[in-house]
Write a protein that binds this DNA or RNA. Structure first.
Lengths: 226, 226
DNA sequence: TAATTGTTCTTCGTATACACTTTGTTCGGA
DNA sequence: TCCGAACAAAGTGTATACGAAGAACAATTA
């Protein structure tokens, strides 16, 4: 990689607040900070080894993204995704990801399709190796890639954020449903390659239906306010 | 999300950062700060009469919302909505607002419908008085109200943010197309009242098509990168 | 027991300091 | 005149300290 060169030129010293935000997000998604848990500024500052300022800025963005709730004069707590919001999230995702699939089908170049197929291959391989973590990672990458191919930045950024939340909820509910979702992925990529928007949309819909059904199986008795 | 908690506890404080954020948003939407304009922290702090901290926190959120772009070590500039993003925004809005209309139709109570009708009446009245500002305001309120009735917080917050951006782009492109949009609004509310999701979705679609067509008429020669 | 008071924790906002980048300017030399 | 390097200015990024005020909880009192 030529990145070491750029590092030397000091081009991108990404601000502490962004590192903190990223760390905070993954900590929440990974369940290191559990829903309802209190996140005082001092504590986070200490956890991440920075001063309070970057922490505060990261918290504001995390609030805007829905990962934490900030109570005036009382500070931040990790948000509690209720089973209600799962339904809501999937309803929105359905509209958004079907659109993404359609746009991707209409705009995908040969190179785009090739990159999707490559991910599919890696996914099949990882599934055979029972490398669940890798499968989940590839799953994300595939979805994000489709969003990117759709070429609509709004769609992309909104769906990306939703997708993170879905991951979060999934992990809280323990199981990842990875194994059988790859068949649907193949359908989806086939449809995108065909350039048929309707077909791509239908494939995305099937995929989401299955995903939301799986989410509900996991969700039984998992969430609840506290 | 957890709004019920909120208004119970930290009643009516309204942190400065939120006031600054609101002021910043409206300043940008109203064109007081023009796209590409540089927003130094000191300047904003002075404009709003606060210190740098609240300003910084507001800026981070404004960045997450897409109103400003923050260049590392160089500060914030007002974002430049290009004509490309208008198409993208309307594509997403179409998916989202049709969903909102459907959900609203399925869930609206008699009181909900009444509040929509009240807005409609006020809108008709304001139109007769040629009070354009008021008409635009009622227009927003109506849409936001429908989102609220949909009962899906994700949908609501995402669409709300998109809606703000649409307003922004509209104002930059000068004209507001308020006058003839009320007929469509009436159709929409009628459909919601009927409880027929399909019909409501169709009405929302018609409305958006008209709006996006109007946006394009305005947009001709309006935007352009700088 | 119920109400009141006090203490403590923590956020919120202000102020200040300083390192480091980026940008703009000036000035000497070809 | 033009070029480039040294220098100065502006502004962000981060840390730290401090006072004010709200909220929670414990202690005290009626």
């Amino acid at each position: 990689m030529a990145e070491d060169l750029r590092d030397k030129l000091g081009a991108q010293h990404l601000p502490l607040r962004d590192q903190v935000l990223a760390a905070l997000r993954t900590a929440i998604i990974d369940g290191d900070y559990l829903p309802g848990e209190r996140l005082t500024e001092d504590r986070l500052a200490e956890d991440f080894g920075v001063s309070r300022n970057p922490v505060r800025e990261a918290l504001r963005v995390a609030e805007a993204e829905g990962f934490v709730v900030i109570l005036p004069r009382r500070g931040a707590v990790v948000a509690s995704p209720s089973s209600g919001t799962i339904t809501d999230m999937f309803a929105v995702r359905q509209r958004l990801e079907t659109l993404a699939a359609r746009l991707a089908a209409e705009r995908a170049t040969a190179a785009d399709v090739a990159s999707l197929r490559a991910l599919l291959d890696q996914g099949r391989e990882a599934t055979q190796r029972h490398d669940l973590a890798r499968v989940a990672e590839l799953n994300s990458t595939l979805h994000l890639r489709i969003l990117q191919i759709s070429g609509n930045p709004w769609l992309s950024s909104i769906a990306k954020s939703l997708y993170l939340h879905v991951q979060w909820v999934f992990r809280l509910g323990a199981a990842e449903r990875a194994p059988h979702s790859w068949a649907e992925h193949i359908q989806l990529v086939d449809a995108i390659e065909s350039g048929d928007g309707d077909r791509a949309e239908r494939a995305a819909l099937d995929h989401l239906d299955a995903a939301s059904a799986a989410a509900y199986e996991n969700a039984e008795g998992g969430y609840g306010a506290r």
